[in-house]
Design a protein around this nucleic acid. Sequence first.
DNA 1: CCTGTTCTCAAACATATGTTTTATTTGGAT
DNA 2: ATCCAAATAAAACATATGTTTGAGAACAGG
Lengths: 248, 248
Amino acid sequence: MTSTNHPLDLLVRNLELRARLSQEDRDAILALPYTLRTLDHLTYTIREGDPPRECAVLVSGFAYRQKTTQDGARQIIALHLPGDALDFQNMYLKVSDHSVQMLTRGEVAIIAREELQELAQARPAIGHAILIKTLVEASIFREWVLNVGRRKARERMAHVLCELGSRMDALGLTQEHGYELPMTQEELADALGLTPVHVNRTLKLLEAEGLIMRTRRSIRFPDWERIREAADFNERYLHLDLQVPSSS
Amino acid sequence: MTSTNHPLDLLVRNLELRARLSQEDRDAILALPYTLRTLDHLTYTIREGDPPRECAVLVSGFAYRQKTTQDGARQIIALHLPGDALDFQNMYLKVSDHSVQMLTRGEVAIIAREELQELAQARPAIGHAILIKTLVEASIFREWVLNVGRRKARERMAHVLCELGSRMDALGLTQEHGYELPMTQEELADALGLTPVHVNRTLKLLEAEGLIMRTRRSIRFPDWERIREAADFNERYLHLDLQVPSSS
DNA sequence: CCTGTTCTCAAACATATGTTTTATTTGGAT
DNA sequence: ATCCAAATAAAACATATGTTTGAGAACAGG
């Protein structure tokens, strides 16, 4: 059990949450050439329309996927936590169909696209782990379509708060699902398909109901089961375990 | 140029729209053992919670991906056309996080999951083609998050109508983007995160604006450019061409 | 420590979309 | 042909969420 400080160690652990890697696979990932860079809030990792040349791996801080409407409305499509590779969704396509931006200041390890692709090809277990990870991301997209399409503001809000709680929990970034919310209410609004003022109303409502406790950006859930219920939150879609098929 | 009647030929053509396959790859796909079955409207191909054991390939008719809320609200996540494999999104995961159902009566070729996975492993080009296809599906999920989250009913409606037009066009199922809408207004509502009543209003509105012409379920666009604009529709997210990276 | 900018919060008002109900039309089954 | 169930359509009314505006609080940069 190595507890290295290698920036890509987080990526390895991230992949190993759902797929099996051999020691050689791990080492091969850690041997990838990369550039470590600190990026400010709002810095783009990739922009819609650009050809993906590299893959950024989030080492610290948070990021999000985003698309905008012709008249400037922004929709946040996904949130990313340390250890997430930000460009698996793009790097096998010719041009990016959406943008990825830093949600907070943070560090990123940049890997050349071909390096990663060659590794995935040379080591099928790594390719498979990447496939699994992209499929889980797609599952989260699906849940977001449901969330934004069919849940009311209160449930919708509660749902992303739960998702963040669960995912941070899986990384050990929280105590009892409580965490520091890494975004403003305006950004929350863009993730929920709501308006900033309605986000504010809704947070106040959840607070008044005793479903959440807030001090500034810090969120705590006095009763995790109760908010799970209120949010209609079922973590199945996060596929938070080893994805070895229950063979037939 | 073989114009066979093999049911899986559609799948091959579907994959070849975006990825390169060799003649051996094609043959290997066509050599897959499969069961042809005719499924009625609403038949499930896979259900949320089930472990995926097989992959259905749509041969004729239409299907959709779907999730529901605890209190029964349904959201349609994606629409599928002939040639689409319905279970790429599930078959590498342990349990399905959503359901797939027939939108119309139609035929399906059922392939055992392991057969397909083994083929994808044995022939990297096929594995790659599958990866590309799942990534494009994910791209469509993202566009739907934007559509449902940030576009008003009119644009939202116009947008799915355009998506269907474009995708059917790519299959040669349309004349000048006009086509037979394979779903009821209630199903449309579930795809749009709207109410059937409002779907009806919105269709009437688009019709009154001269953006669409309808007779029953048949849709035509008097001016494709005009509705594209009204829909804020940019087909980039469909990645309708060969995905060979513009190498750096 | 000050200062400007960015966030949060609030209130009053506007509107897009939802709800309920009922009528009409359509299409598939007998 | 006939009939029943489902789909479309329409109207009247309800409400969740959006819009606009502004004030106080927090924070970042000098």
